[in-house]
Write a protein that binds this DNA or RNA. Sequence first.
RNA 1: GGGGUGUUAGCUCAGCUGGUUAGAGCGCCGGCCUGUCACGCCGGAGGUCACGGGUUCAAGUCCCGCACAUCCCGCCA
Length: 591
Amino acid sequence: MSDFLNNYSMHTHTCGQLTAADAGASVVLTGWVNHRRDHGGLIFIDLRDRDGFTQIVFDPDDTGEHFLLGETVRPEWVIQIEGIVRLRPADTANRNLPTGEIEVIVKKAAVLNSSKTPPFLIEDGIETDELTRLKWRYLDIRRPEVLAALRLRATVTRALRDALDERGFIEIETPILGKSTPEGARDFIVPSRLNAGKFYALPQSPQLLKQLLMIGGVERYYQVARCFRDEDLRADRQPEFTQIDVEMSFVTEDDVMTMMEDVIAHVFGKVEVDHSFPLQRMQYAEAMERFGCDRPDTRFGMELHDLSNIVRDSGFKVFAGAIEAGGVVKAINCKGAGDWSRGEIDKLGVIAADNGAKGMAWIAFTSSGEEKSPIIKFFSDEAYAVLKEEMQAEPGDLVLFAADKPAVANAVLSAVRLHMAEALDIPREGHRLLWIVNFPLFKYDEKEERYAAEHHPFTRVRDEDLDRIEDEPLSCGSYSYDLVMDGFEIGGGTIRIHTPELQERVLRRIGHSDEEIKEQFGFLVQALGFGAPPHGGIALGLDRLIMLLGGYDSIRDVIAFPKTSSGSDPMSEAPAPVSSRQLKEANIRLA
RNA sequence: GGGGUGUUAGCUCAGCUGGUUAGAGCGCCGGCCUGUCACGCCGGAGGUCACGGGUUCAAGUCCCGCACAUCCCGCCA
């Protein structure tokens, strides 16, 4: 049958193309048999390709000897048909289908390939377990909604490239085989056959290399960079993921944020998402105070209130004790939960426990005007009145308290806030982006009993805090900015250190000896000494961005071949053992 | 590393306080059907109840372990 086809395509049209205007045309279509409706004397098939569906009709009067093929084919068989486009009879048009006004009456048909019965239906809206879908991912991808996710990804990536190209950025590839560094996440390592006992590391990000590109005078760089981190997985974390990695020279943090907003605006235009620019910029400290986390979902309120001063002198020992120990008492007002049962409220304690707290106090203001709580009795009338005023509590509200170290209280209420927004079905339509700026430069790692970089150790300290690096590290701010969208961190960046002296000071402050600095970061420190320009940049988490734009629950939905939570691929069964010969060549002996 | 939830037919699930031959819908196979589009009607096949132990006269059901999946904490500069 292929004899009537040209060299470039086995069809004249796609399955999403034909309209009433094509009526009467002779066409050739290829695709997969989607649904087949056999009426005995008349067979309808929805033919599917990447572009859509077209109904083709096998009619013994018109189709002749090829009618037999219509009876033979089954779902997912690959066929090619030649036929005539015609308007469907009156009242049989399918308005749910772009091609629903027409059908193709089959004149000739050929089977290009048969198919086994697929393990799940190839159609949108299935509820098949993800493991099964991943095991047969190539069948899953045939489903229009899965392909649509990959298409969205391509559109967004294209738009990002276009926007950055237009602004003079140069796309440069950096190596996948690199050097392991002591800071940050666990590295994936690759043995070097040519260098027995030595290992490459896969990049967690091209951080140092893009800084070296700035020192190399590139000034504006970007890369669609695959990054690797050997850490435990989450719905929004995969062992390999993609960042839009950007770096610029001769810029302030304001320059980077403004440039990035232009780029994002361009992307949103391409995917028809509304958002106002410029974006809100919120201090890190304010985000922690009001939302308890550094990536707040600002599409709804339910903000945290610090009640420490109000409840400090109450008779409630849990509150007073927490404050005495240097902690805080904070609360959120969950409007609409005031009539929750005690059992329902108690279940929220699990969230508190998950985040390191011992429990969660509450006051329920029922819609009938009652005020139920195990703790009201501890407050003076005056303090209680002030508390109600601060929380603006009214009938129908549920006020939840966390009394603990600031970090724990924030973590608990931040998690509860998101949980309650979900449970109370609080509207969170659309998208909301904002910058969180001025992160602390350092944090204290209690487990390792040392200071560590909050962002990464190449972040520049704010000029006004330069003198406090050694003595008061926790009070040092940084030139840093995270891009937050709907409660997810979709990007983060900093202005970098561009002098060797400051870089050494910071590395020493987080506990590296001069020897380690020379060994691990020597090439960077040396390079900074050769006229490194002031520079900074940002990395966008492409997977998360697309997940949010497409409304998906997991980045697995926007990755063609994702890994399961144990880091394995159910289809190829990677990772897998290798032969003893491969091990020997790589100079690896298993324990 | 820790916690929650789940695992029964190809898929999605039901299966009660343990009790005869483990069910349903969809899919699949066969038959009928000339205007369907989740076509319809009739019939049929299809099960190591994830896996390994234990309790019991008797285990899909109870207990212990384990594997896998998923969500969360830790971790992820």
